[in-house]
């Protein structure tokens, strides 16, 4: 069957098409500013980790995490920082750390866990570490947290 017609971008012929940008409010910050903030956070997380303050480090990196278009580099830096934290946390500590996070941060953390799972083999992503965190986070924040990760268009 010829399915070539499916290659036509029908939205291009719709004057009243709904654009991605209308579905959520973009990050008000400038992309370069977002990047420099992400890098600064990466440094402060390292110092927090050396003091063994995992909750503090997680809150720092999850606070105003970059989202939306044009900030790909900052997103990667943030993901890298987050991976450093979760890879160095002992599995017995995860529950306590997750419970100490405010709800906003729990939702953002879940977004990063899914982002990590979508990039197998990238950097030092370890599937078992991500799944361990995912299990503990779901126990605390519930399936609602996963639903919010899936619906939210402000992807990290």
């Amino acid at each position: 069957m010829d399915v070539n017609f499916r290659k036509i971008d029908i939205d291009a012929y719709d004057e009243d098409v709904l654009h991605e940008s209308e579905l959520y409010e973009a990050d008000p910050r400038d992309p370069s500013q977002v990047l420099s903030e992400a890098k600064a956070k990466s440094a402060s997380v390292r110092s927090l980790l050396s003091k063994n303050d995992i909750s503090g480090a997680l809150s720092a990196v999850l606070e105003s995490a970059p989202y939306g278009p044009n900030v790909e580099e900052a997103k990667i830096v943030t993901l890298q920082t987050l991976l450093t934290i979760i890879n160095t946390t002992k599995s017995t500590e995860i529950s306590g750390v997750v419970k100490s996070l405010p709800q906003d941060d729990q939702d953002t953390l879940m977004k990063y866990l899914y982002k990590g799972m979508a990039m197998p083999g990238w950097g030092d992503i370890s599937g078992s570490v991500l799944l361990g965190w995912h299990e503990k986070l779901t126990e605390v924040a519930g399936t609602g947290c996963i639903v919010r990760t899936m619906t939210d268009r402000r992807t990290v």
Partner: peptide, 9 residues
């Protein structure tokens, strides 16, 4: 006021 649930929508 937003109440975010731990359960399904």
């Amino acid at each position: 006021h937003s109440v975010r649930l731990p359960s399904l929508p």
